[in-house]
Amino acid sequence: MRFKSSINPPVFFSSVFLIAAMVIVCAIWPEQSQHVFKTVQTWFERKAGWLYILGVAIFLIFIVFVMVSRFGDIKLGPDHAEPDYSYVSWIAMLFSAGMGIGLMFFGVAEPVMHYLAPPDATPESLQAAKDAMMITFFHWGLHAWAIYAVVALCLAYFSYRHKLPLLPRSALYPLIGDRIFGPIGHAVDTFAVLGTMFGVATSLGFGVLQVNSGLNYLVGLPVSAMVQVGLIVVITLIATASVFSGLDSGVKRLSELNLLLAFLLMMFVLLIGPTVSLLQAFVQNTGAYLSDLVGKTFNLYAYQQKNDWIGGWTLLYWAGGSLGHHLSAPLLRVFLVVVLSVNF
């Protein structure tokens, strides 16, 4: 069997090098690197937080602008293109590429955490309860999907309409022309690899922490880092096996089944829980979210010195979660096809 490869050496090797360097440093000096992580995170929260907030705000404004402006009429592909995937299977892949783990991990935990330790209100008050849902909506709402939409729209547009490669660098073609095929383009794609790698690794980390807790709760499996690594090994091998056996379509069906299961779980909780008040809350919170959108978008707690709070939450979702998740697969395959059919 011939050993085939289709790698693009500059991107492949610089990505592998950077990731390997990080892994080796963490493996050899775990304690020092833990300290470094803490310092770096604090620095980001205090000094670069505004940059993330502003960036994400720009993405949301940009996407809305493109939708409502005259550009909204521009089609992303041939007029009569049919979608490759159905809408449901597209949504399923969207959630299964990272968002699913986030919803399972934070669905209960995040609102409760904000309720117990709110940024403004008195802890465990009625106001804290309202605020908690507001903040959660804000983190999981339009902003997160706007990040997704920007990347997806760029990729789809430049590959379908301009026949450029399906890569982030293609979006820079109008700015730097053929130089996207040079070092700048390689750097752009490498950044995308790093963002995706650590974004996905983070959701895998969350996932395995939760599986560990769940198994501890159900069958008494001890909670420890070694057990978690063991779980990662096992689940990664299953994922690898599915890739190896060419079960791509199987994975597609699995993610649809998964979404259905998640949906049923949600419906069950909805029916067992305070159904009517939940539905009321859903409508009211959505309205309050829309009315607060602008103010909250730019809220940095600039006058209250609550940098830590923003750092801990907003950054985590938008930078850590969203950027990573939203580079993921559906966007590369399914998304563009659906966008095509919807005509944006």
Partner: peptide
């Protein structure tokens, strides 16, 4: 569910 989401995340990543 979480375990399956893990597999699909890893796969798409």
């Amino acid at each position: 569910l979480v375990a399956t989401f893990f597999v699909t995340s890893s796969d798409s990543g």
